[in-house]
Simulated assay, not measured.
Amino acid sequence: MPDGRDRYTISEVAAHTGLSAHTLRWYERIGLMPHIDRSHTGQRRYTNRDLDWLALVGKLRLTGMAVADMVRYADLVRQGDHTFAERHALLCATREDVRRRIAELQGTLAVLDFKIDIYADAPRVSERSETSA
């Protein structure tokens, strides 16, 4: 997916995104998703544009952005171009949070690498101490 068509059921979108139908409905209810078109029977019909938006929401989730901030961002997008500055500020703040978390993770990785190196050398140290005894 996308497969050349531009209308997808909630189950198809759930399968494609890995999100549950419940989560997709919740995103719509809290204002994180734009209005989703409905078929004549009332069934949700997602578009490729909706899939693109969900991909962005997925990336925002991975940044650790709070749901309230994601909803705020979605609201700003719906309000139009005059909200560019606010959107920019929100995304810049999120980027700084991500950079801070990356730095923390790099420090944590360095500690793990140090400990792994100790354990990797442990059998050789143990073997030397046994042969010299």
Rank of each mutant, 00 (worst) to 15 (best):
M1K: 12
P2D: 01
D3A: 06
R5L: 05
D6K: 05
Y8H: 10
T9M: 12
E12T: 01
E12Y: 13
V13H: 08
A14D: 07
A15T: 14
A15M: 11
G18K: 04
S20A: 07
S20G: 15
S20N: 09
A21G: 09
T23S: 15
T23G: 02
L24D: 01
R25T: 04
W26E: 06
Y27K: 05
E28L: 02
R29K: 15
R29Y: 05
I30S: 01
G31M: 07
G31I: 03
G31W: 07
M33R: 06
M33N: 08
I36H: 06
I36M: 08
S39M: 06
H40M: 03
H40D: 15
T41D: 14
T41H: 13
T41M: 06
G42C: 03
Q43E: 13
Q43L: 00
R45A: 12
T47H: 11
N48V: 06
N48Q: 08
R49H: 14
R49M: 13
D50M: 09
L51D: 10
W53S: 00
L54W: 05
L54N: 03
L56P: 00
V57Q: 08
V57M: 13
L60F: 09
L62H: 12
L62V: 03
T63L: 05
G64L: 09
M65Y: 02
A66Y: 03
A66H: 08
V67G: 01
D69F: 00
D69G: 00
M70R: 12
M70L: 09
V71H: 00
V71N: 05
R72A: 09
A74R: 01
A74V: 00
L76A: 09
L76V: 02
V77I: 11
R78T: 01
G80K: 04
G80R: 04
G80H: 06
D81N: 02
H82P: 03
T83W: 00
F84W: 08
F84R: 07
A85N: 09
A85V: 06
A85S: 13
E86M: 10
E86N: 10
E86Y: 01
E86V: 01
H88Q: 14
C92Y: 04
C92M: 14
A93R: 15
A93K: 08
E96N: 12
D97R: 15
D97Y: 00
D97T: 10
R99M: 14
R100K: 12
I102W: 06
I102F: 11
A103W: 07
Q106N: 14
V111S: 12
D113V: 02
D113N: 11
F114E: 15
I116Q: 13
I116V: 14
I118G: 13
Y119A: 06
D121W: 10
A122R: 12
E127Q: 10
S129L: 15
S129D: 14
S129E: 14
E130L: 15
S132R: 13
S132C: 11
